[in-house]
Amino acid sequence: MTVIAAQALELALEGVRYETEGHTLLHGVDLTARPGETVGVVGPNGSGKTTLLRCVYGTLRPTAGRVLLDGADAGALTVKDRARRVAVVPQEASGTFGLTVREVVAMGRSPHKRFWEQDGPDDVRRVAEALETVGAGAFAARRFDELSGGERQRALVARALVQDPGLLALDEPTNHLDIRYQLEILGLVRALPATGLLVLHDLNLAAAFCDRLYVLDGGRVVASGPPAGVLTEELLAEVYGVRTRIGVHPDTGAPNIVYLHSAGATRPRPPGTRTGG
């Protein structure tokens, strides 16, 4: 199946800070994603991952610092110009009530058309290809709001594909997906010519599919680099508060994390054991 072609762009965050209601959620974050790279943003809940992603695709404006797309200040772009460069897969979709899956996916063509312009044969072809690519062709005629969480996620990835972006920004793209589609969606993102910026909770998936990782904690970058250099037992204990054993995956060569227990917790008993009394 053919996937949508795009020219990858370079993303750079320079000292991005974001404050709201007296709280600082991002503290001068620097981040780079080179053309064609797949870069992961990881960290515990509340570390600023989604806030960072929203600053990248424009629903939030940084309090300080800049987001650069191929060297151009993203804050100076119109909404439509930015949407031609950056496509997003959010955790939740809005503005889709009553629409079919095919109609939701077709919304991704809007940045490339005039307001009154109807879908042409090329738009129809791109939508059909994207639906088949993510395994959503079978339910293209169903209403989006009637889908399961995993089906919705696949449809949102398809919508991003037809947007033909230079940068694909995904917030937990494997959320609600079973293992097969987790692997297929991340494999697809990695194979695209577009640059990928992914927020992920699953560190083993991040290690397997990302070229480089940025670890956020309290709105600050505390580590960055290739997964093998970033995902250490010491860092995971400090940032996540868990004990781990990290080996090498026998097939991919990526770091493979085995979680033991919380760094401050009592070691769990094996099944079937009993305490005295």
Rank of each mutant, 00 (worst) to 15 (best):
V3Y: 12
I4S: 15
L9V: 15
L9M: 15
L9Q: 15
L13F: 10
V16G: 05
Y18G: 01
E19H: 05
E19I: 04
E19G: 08
T20M: 11
T20S: 14
E21H: 12
E21K: 12
H23E: 13
T24L: 05
L25C: 03
L31V: 08
L31N: 00
L31C: 07
A33P: 02
P35N: 14
P35Y: 13
G36K: 01
G36C: 07
G36H: 03
G40S: 03
V41T: 04
G43R: 02
P44S: 04
S47K: 04
T50S: 15
T50R: 00
T50K: 01
T50N: 06
T51D: 04
L52G: 05
L53T: 07
L53G: 11
V56A: 01
P62V: 13
A72Y: 12
D73V: 11
D73K: 01
A74E: 06
L77M: 14
L77W: 10
T78C: 06
T78G: 14
V79A: 15
K80V: 14
D81F: 11
A83K: 07
A83D: 07
R85W: 12
V88H: 09
A93T: 11
S94H: 14
V101C: 11
E103L: 06
G108Q: 12
G108E: 12
S110C: 07
P111N: 07
W116G: 02
E117I: 11
D119R: 15
D119E: 13
G120A: 11
P121Y: 11
V124L: 15
E129S: 14
T133L: 11
G135V: 07
G135P: 06
G137C: 06
A140C: 08
F144Q: 05
L147I: 09
G149S: 13
G150W: 05
E151H: 06
E151R: 01
R152Y: 08
R154L: 13
L156T: 03
A160F: 13
Q163I: 13
D164P: 06
D164A: 15
G166I: 13
L168Y: 09
T174G: 01
D178W: 08
I179V: 13
R180G: 12
L183G: 03
E184A: 07
L188K: 01
R190S: 04
A191C: 04
P193A: 12
T195F: 08
T195L: 05
V199S: 07
D202M: 04
D202L: 06
A206L: 00
A207F: 00
A207H: 00
F209P: 03
C210N: 00
D211E: 14
R212C: 02
V215K: 02
G218N: 10
G218T: 13
G225S: 10
P226K: 03
P227I: 07
P227K: 05
G229P: 09
V230Q: 03
E233Y: 04
L235F: 03
V239G: 02
Y240H: 04
G241A: 05
V242S: 04
R243H: 13
R243V: 05
R243D: 09
T244W: 00
T244A: 01
T244D: 01
I246E: 07
V248S: 12
V248E: 14
H249G: 08
P250G: 02
P250Y: 01
T252G: 02
T252D: 02
A254P: 06
N256T: 09
N256D: 10
V258N: 06
L260C: 09
H261I: 04
G264Y: 12
A265K: 10
R269L: 13
P271R: 15
G272T: 09
R274M: 14
